[in-house]
């Protein structure tokens, strides 16, 4: 668990972030002491403005497969590309100013290594703004290596066959180990080749962000929801006969409500906070009916300051980096705003 402080002013809210879970490609965290607009800004920025790399230009030399060039190019574009910073080995950009560097989350940030092509003074593309991939698969050659019983099958060209010219940049074949273990292909399928067919192309991956094209979006899911505040009238619940308690538990889909102690079955707790707000009204109506005082035994309301985020990465950028980059992007935007406001104020003064 780690906390990041975002604002420095005394009067400002001091939002806190608490990471609830962090797995290979998904993450759940809580943002506290802020409001919906801030939470939404973070969500939007993660989806649309985190800088990633994706194949942007494909040059075909040979394509005798049954899929047309433009479709293959489109498929290549959607393959997530990963940049892995290797301390000491990766040569970083030298033109990054200290301010810029400070604005970036860490050395792992892709912008420490690559420039946007539009900001680069090269002609077309260069090592500092792009990465080249090559793909050359000839059915008649690759089929020699497959087992005999698969010889009549078409060969599936996957992201495995993409060869990068930069050791730090490579396509993502699987989002997680679990996906790798369950997949029947060695990577992301691009095209199938039959006997005599060949595909030879080179691709250039460039930096971009989700608002330009969906292929640069680093996450498949980024969503938040207000954290519910829950209160039970435990005494009233305990006073109910057991069968009525069961009815309360069953009013929601399985897994939303449950007993605190399965053997005791006296106090009901919320097992799934994420879903409880949808069913609050149902539970309230029911408990109001059951209550002798005609008073609901349950209260839940959406918090306006605390939010639970769930983010799922596509693999190109590690999920925690997605969030960090998002936060930094907001920071950068706010800094820009601050500077602009200061300028205007200076002008008016």
């Amino acid at each position: 668990m780690s906390c990041y402080s975002v604002a420095a002013d005394q009067r400002a809210r001091r939002p806190e972030v608490e990471v609830l879970s962090l797995e290979e490609n998904q993450m759940s965290f809580e943002v506290k002491k802020t409001d919906a607009s801030m939470a939404n800004a973070l969500r939007r920025v993660i989806i649309a403005e985190v800088v990633t790399m994706a194949i942007d230009l494909v040059t075909f030399e040979e394509n005798t497969s049954c899929i047309d060039d433009e479709i293959i190019a489109h498929r290549l574009g959607l393959i997530p590309i990963k940049y892995a910073f290797k301390p000491g080995k990766t040569k970083l950009r030298e033109d990054v100013s200290n301010d810029e560097a400070a604005a970036m989350s860490s050395e792992r940030d892709i912008q420490r290594r690559f420039r946007f092509t539009r900001d680069c003074d090269c002609d077309g593309y260069c090592d500092w703004c792009a990465c080249t991939f090559k793909l050359h698969v000839k059915y008649d050659e690759v089929i020699k290596n497959v087992p005999e019983h698969e010889k009549n099958q078409p060969y599936t060209v996957t992201s495995i066959n993409l060869e990068s010219d930069d050791p730090d940049v490579f396509p993502v074949h699987f989002v997680s180990e679990r996906e790798r273990n369950t997949s029947s292909e060695p990577g992301i399928a691009i095209v199938k080749l039959a006997k005599g067919q060949e595909i030879k192309l080179s691709c250039i991956a460039k930096l971009g962000c989700g608002k330009e094209h969906a292929k640069w979006t680093p996450v498949s899911k980024c969503v938040f929801r207000p954290k519910p505040t829950i209160s039970w009238d435990d005494n009233a619940v305990r006073a109910l006969p057991p069968n009525l308690r069961n009815i309360i538990v069953d009013v929601c889909p399985a897994g939303v409500l449950g007993y605190e102690d399965e053997r005791d079955r006296t106090s009901i707790v919320v097992k799934n906070e994420a879903a409880i707000l949808d069913f609050t009204k149902d539970i309230q109506d029911l408990t109001k009916q059951l209550s002798p005082q005609n008073k609901p035994m349950f209260h839940a309301s959406a918090s306006t300051t605390d939010f639970v985020f769930e983010v799922e990465s596509l693999g190109g950028v590690p999920v925690d980096d997605c969030v960090l980059c998002g936060l930094n992007e907001i920071k950068r935007k706010l800094t820009n705003l601050q500077v602009a406001v200061a300028e205007v104020a200076a002008e008016q003064a």
Partner: peptide, 11 residues
Amino acid sequence: PECDMPFCESG
């Protein structure tokens, strides 16, 4: 744009 679309609780 996707970020402007309404979203469900599941994302």
